[in-house]
Design a protein around this nucleic acid. Sequence first.
DNA 1: AATTAACATGAATCAATTTCATATTTTTCA
DNA 2: TGAAAAATATGAAATTGATTCATGTTAATT
Lengths: 321, 321
Amino acid sequence: MFLELRHLRTLIALRDSGNLAAAAQQLHQTQSALSHQIKAIEDYYSAPLFIRKSRPLRFTPLGERLLQLAETILPAVQSAEQDAQQISGASQGRLHIAIECHNCFDWLIPTMDAYRAQWSRVEMDISTGFTFEPIPALARGRVDLVITSDPLDLPDIVYEPLFRYEALLAMANDHPLTGRKYIEPRDLTDQTLITYPVEHKRLDIYSKFLDPAGIVPAGQRTSELTVMILQLIASRRGVGALPNWVLAEYLGNRYITARPLTAAGLWATLYAAVRRNDRQLAFVDAFLQRARETAFKVLAGIKPAADEARHTGAGGQRARQ
Amino acid sequence: MFLELRHLRTLIALRDSGNLAAAAQQLHQTQSALSHQIKAIEDYYSAPLFIRKSRPLRFTPLGERLLQLAETILPAVQSAEQDAQQISGASQGRLHIAIECHNCFDWLIPTMDAYRAQWSRVEMDISTGFTFEPIPALARGRVDLVITSDPLDLPDIVYEPLFRYEALLAMANDHPLTGRKYIEPRDLTDQTLITYPVEHKRLDIYSKFLDPAGIVPAGQRTSELTVMILQLIASRRGVGALPNWVLAEYLGNRYITARPLTAAGLWATLYAAVRRNDRQLAFVDAFLQRARETAFKVLAGIKPAADEARHTGAGGQRARQ
DNA sequence: AATTAACATGAATCAATTTCATATTTTTCA
DNA sequence: TGAAAAATATGAAATTGATTCATGTTAATT
């Protein structure tokens, strides 16, 4: 009568990821939040849930028992929630999505396909938010969900984190910079940078990497299409910063190599912005889950290669907007 | 990912008790709280959980599905929590209980027996709080739990509701007032009232029934012992106000009859007072659960007779302290 | 021993839940 | 059918609870 599902979900995440900080990230919360939460359980039982020293983290018998409960129960909850959504009539609704990222299609299309299978009565539509301001449009009800990586604070708009990604510098396989473990701003002084054709300040590689160091690359070139950018990079016309999930499938073939920007890496979070009231609707919530799930699968494929080998992105503690 | 156990517990209570207000009472919350909570679920699924018209309340398929989830899951949670308590080492602790009610033994002893079976390492003790002020003693750490029916507001002391009970006027079987459906203050002007020997203001029959009406009974007599009071009543020495749960077993034999005080009945809530910090300890929490459970069983036996036949105690909305 | 990673903690903030007070709807009964 | 009673709903305020922020402490690593 004390436990809540939230606690059980935390335990699962903790087991899956092996340490508090990583679990917190998986749940889009801070390490502190989980620490407090676990402490609450431990205080309640006056006993520890896991052994702090020792990695990979080991659970105590108490922890194991609750974990076991989580394992038996959470799937039942999930399937009940699915049934409930189905029963409640694949309730109709509208989900007009605006995207602010050129390459989100990679995971968005699969997400929408999977989503549509369950929510056939929800009317979906995508528009690219390059010709209008998506967030104000969201506030005004013109669109219902905006995918963006920089939250703009407006009343009644909330930002649900979808996943974190890392921008990597992609270059031809035989490019001199492939020798580096990671790239520093001054490495780009004599390079041509290939980007999407959007405002300067909207490109993280400028706003978070080059500009702070006062570096300007030798040349710039733009393209609307991700595949085109990759073509240009492969054919040695320049280098470009792209999200790890985009590069995932291209790193397989031997034309392109990617390196982190900065030792710590250049990380960002992708959010789904929705109106505050819509957040608590099943058909919206389900979309968010699908998106996270799809993205997770895409990213899981590249984890060992691009991510876990290095720092885990120690960065700040910020979790949501 | 939206549901919490809290929601499921509400659904079960709702099914068990057939209407919102009763469910709320069972959960020691207000009707309003449950209404809001259910609305939240319904908003989420954009579909109703139960059909409002029609009593006994009927669930929709959506409601049924979630109810089914609750039924499969909650027992698992309960047994896991029990195991967890066991594992966590039947953690030792101290539970010195002070009671402010003369007749609480009726359910307290069974409660303690059941409790001790699970929590053998918890050191228990009872003292009657008639020679000292129990709540200050609790604050000072002299005792750990106080059973009382009138909360005294102190910082760091919280009151956990155990159950509601009704004070009934007990009288000999052939007493003239047995003719009444319920008793009014002036009915007692020519009666002798038998009470426990405690302060006038601590007796609800005075503070909430006779005093407001400005009535003084013809005589008064006191006794420490519940059985003695019952003896006196049965032998026509007077009448006395006793909680419904005390009378439950004595109404069986044909010596005593009980009637509500006032058409609405004279209701009160029995609380367990604990230090704020202690509330979130498993061994304390477990005691509260046991107490409620035991009390529930005792009261269940008399429900149809003394309670449900009349008003359900429409009274206020207040749920906890 | 110094450095870094991992976890803990107190205070402040933010969000969610609950209550209070009252309105609305439904049911019952004369 | 209308009045009274019962049941449920609702908005705003208050309370409680959870999360973050900023930083401290402990454990692991080089």
